[in-house]
Simulated assay, not measured.
Amino acid sequence: MGLSAAIEPGTDRPIAMKLEKEEEEDIRLKEEEEEDDEKEKEEKEKDKKEKKAPSSSAKSIIVTAASVVAGGVGAVALAPVVLGAVGFTSAGIAAGSIAANMMSAAAIANGGGVAAGSLVAVLQSAGAAGLSGAATAAVASAGGAVGWLTSFVSRKVLKDNKDE
């Protein structure tokens, strides 16, 4: 007794071979669907992580704002220290200091006296009595500008280093 197999119409293949090929195709399609589902899941997780983390532009704005504030506050806090170190003290201009040299040059330029409202007069006033409200605002603005410039330059340097 011999084995017989039904032959697929129009081919020389037995029907069983056709079923095996269909099963292989079904398995391949299922694997592709699973891979697609896995990729889709990974993309959704990545999107969730990106939404939680602040964007680089938001970080940049925060760093810039912090730099400006730190520059302004630092400038106002250090102004009296710097004035004293240069020679503009509460007791007057310190002999032999940078302030004394500035006063001498201003007096020579003005025929023997320091003009009211000149840089030397304004700095001596700030050294003796402290910064006025307007001077505080000006110093804070200058310090904020330096803070911004520092932030700007550091971002450019960091960007250039990343590109290398």
Rank of each mutant, 00 (worst) to 15 (best):
E22V: 05
E22H: 06
E23F: 15
E24W: 08
E24C: 03
E24Q: 13
E25A: 14
E25S: 10
D26P: 00
D26K: 12
D26S: 05
I27D: 12
I27W: 05
R28N: 13
R28M: 13
L29F: 10
K30M: 12
E33Q: 11
E33G: 00
E34W: 07
E34M: 09
E34K: 12
E35K: 15
E35H: 12
E38I: 11
E42Q: 11
E43Y: 11
E43L: 14
E43F: 11
K44C: 01
E45C: 03
E45L: 02
K46Q: 10
K46V: 03
D47V: 07
D47Q: 14
D47C: 05
K48A: 13
K48G: 07
K48C: 03
K48N: 11
E50S: 04
E50L: 13
K51H: 10
K51E: 13
K52Q: 13
K52S: 08
A53E: 12
A53I: 05
A53C: 01
P54T: 04
P54I: 07
S55W: 08
S56H: 05
S56R: 08
S56C: 02
K59Y: 03
K59N: 09
K59H: 06
K59Q: 06
S60P: 02
S60F: 04
S60T: 06
I61N: 08
I62K: 09
I62H: 04
V63T: 07
V63R: 09
A65Y: 01
A65L: 07
A65E: 00
A66L: 05
A66R: 02
A66N: 03
A66I: 02
A66P: 01
S67E: 00
V69Y: 03
V69N: 02
V69P: 03
A70S: 12
A70F: 09
A70K: 04
G71H: 02
G71V: 01
G71Y: 03
G72A: 14
G72R: 01
V73S: 03
G74S: 08
G74N: 06
G74A: 06
G74R: 08
A75R: 02
V76A: 14
A77E: 11
A77H: 11
A77V: 15
A77F: 14
A77M: 15
L78N: 08
L78H: 00
L78E: 03
A79N: 10
P80R: 05
V81N: 08
G84I: 05
G84W: 07
A85M: 15
A85P: 09
V86F: 11
F88P: 10
F88H: 10
T89W: 01
S90L: 01
S90H: 09
A91E: 13
A91I: 00
A94D: 12
A94H: 03
A94K: 15
G96R: 04
G96M: 06
G96W: 08
S97Q: 04
S97E: 06
S97I: 04
S97W: 05
I98F: 13
I98G: 00
A99K: 02
A99C: 03
A99D: 01
A99V: 02
A99H: 01
N101L: 11
N101A: 13
M102L: 15
M102S: 14
M102V: 09
M102I: 13
M102F: 15
M103V: 10
S104Q: 15
S104T: 14
S104N: 15
A106Y: 11
I108H: 00
I108W: 00
I108Y: 00
I108C: 00
I108G: 00
A109M: 10
A109D: 10
A109Y: 09
A109P: 08
